[in-house]
Nucleic acid binder design. Structure first.
Lengths: 239, 239
DNA sequence: CGTCATTTTGAGGTATTTCAACGAAGGTGG
DNA sequence: CCACCTTCGTTGAAATACCTCAAAATGACG
């Protein structure tokens, strides 16, 4: 557990692709000035692995920016089944509320560093700074797209294909920190199952299937190496 | 496509529930001034039933505001299967793009009246008007929530339950125009199937099942009367 | 009123879910 | 440091539900 000591604190980072600017594919980061402005109203928070950050139904006071680590947001259904609505990674924001209450429960999958800011405060700032607000708009559009992609994923009936999509999804998020072909899956199998809307057993069987097909190779439970990217892609896009 | 010219045009309406203002449950509508500002840069467009409004992959120039009617957005998968990502109703906006291209195809399910505005223009206006932009933020948050709700729906395995959720979803949107218990389902069965991620036959069987159970009664193909709301709710929330 | 598309119904195949038991891993306390 | 215990993951077998293919029936439309 190494705590870094950067000389100049930059404040929350938000990565967003523009919603409206038609042909700008570049990933935009907040300007230093904007970061500092956010920093002045935000608080840095550390969450140990497994900690519940907020619960569904409680007053949605804060908005969070994941700075490091992975967060899951979920709902427990009456039947006892759990549905994970999203995994949040560095630069993602979470804390969606409806009628003043959080709509999901948020929990740290790994140790998490986040910034949190009172929504009231943020709203006031945004009303003053259209440019900053625009970043939030873009970010939200990004979230919407991932949510739609996920819905697309859930539409599939075939387990191996879903898992393939999930691995590829995780690859995109981890590529910055790990080797090219080694993908970390820090969440449990049941988390993956709850995210993909399938039973834990199906996920387990799917992993062994992918392994036996020689497409992937597991390095322990929480890391997977892709041996045959082409076939993985094919499985994922096949349908 | 027709262009506007009524006497007192109010301009596009956007309904949005606030994302950030914690305990304000009230549905906010744009102020008259804001509507007029949007109107000055927007064009009213009429789409006959079945018309494709834009296609996935084409340049995402415009953002649309559904004023009347129902729009579906979808993707056709390589296998030939169609996935409907959303149905859009009055006051919803659509035209989500990524890297300058529409991510879905949009098509009018019923005759549709919409406002469309060039994204570049809108972006410029929003950068100047933080309050207006805030409405868009709220609207987008709303879209995100529905997308998540839909993902929740897709997670279910049971056909009757999914259909029950869909009927309830449609009830919420149609209650303004029809009698309390008569719900219009203007889209085809295949559209419903593509939205719920199931086969057309499954949907058909589910409708007959719900009918035989005495929970609903169909008035033709495109309207359904709920006879037993309690059991419908139970089916929908059960899981 | 006839034609065409959509919807319903039927039968069989297949995938996932369940239920159940076993094996592995991680954490805690002695 | 090891043993125990709890949680998580794997594997097996049966049941259920959906999907696919195919054909009949219904409804829409000109």
């Amino acid at each position: 557990m190494t705590t870094r000591r950067p000389k100049a604190e930059l404040g929350p980072a938000i990565r967003a692709v523009p919603l409206l600017a038609a042909d700008n594919v570049t990933i935009q980061l907040l300007s230093t000035k904007q970061r500092q402005q956010l920093l002045s109203i935000a608080t840095k928070v550390q969450h140990p692995k497994g900690q519940v950050i907020y619960r569904r139904g409680t007053p949605g006071t804060w908005l969070y920016f994941c700075q490091e680590g992975i967060v899951k947001t979920y709902r427990d259904l009456p039947s006892g089944t759990r549905r994970i609505t999203a995994f949040l990674f560095a630069h993602d924001m979470f804390g969606l509320a409806e009628a003043g209450r959080y709509v999901n429960t948020a929990q740290a999958v790994t140790p998490v560093t986040s910034y949190r800011v009172a929504k009231e405060t943020l709203a006031a700032v945004l009303q003053q700074d259209a440019a900053l607000e625009y970043h939030f708009l873009a970010k939200l559009a990004h979230e919407l797209r991932s949510s739609q992609r996920r819905a697309m994923m859930l539409g599939r009936r075939d387990a191996a294909g879903r898992l393939a999509m999930f691995i590829i999804l995780m690859k995109r998020h981890g590529s910055e920190r790990t080797a090219d072909d080694l993908i970390r899956l820090p969440m449990s199998r049941s988390d993956i199952a709850a995210f993909l809307g399938q039973s834990l057993e199906s996920i387990s069987r799917a992993t062994t299937r992918l392994t036996k097909l020689g497409i992937v190779q597991f390095q322990g439970r929480y890391a997977v190496r892709v041996l045959d990217p082409a076939r993985l892609e094919e499985l994922a896009s096949n349908l």
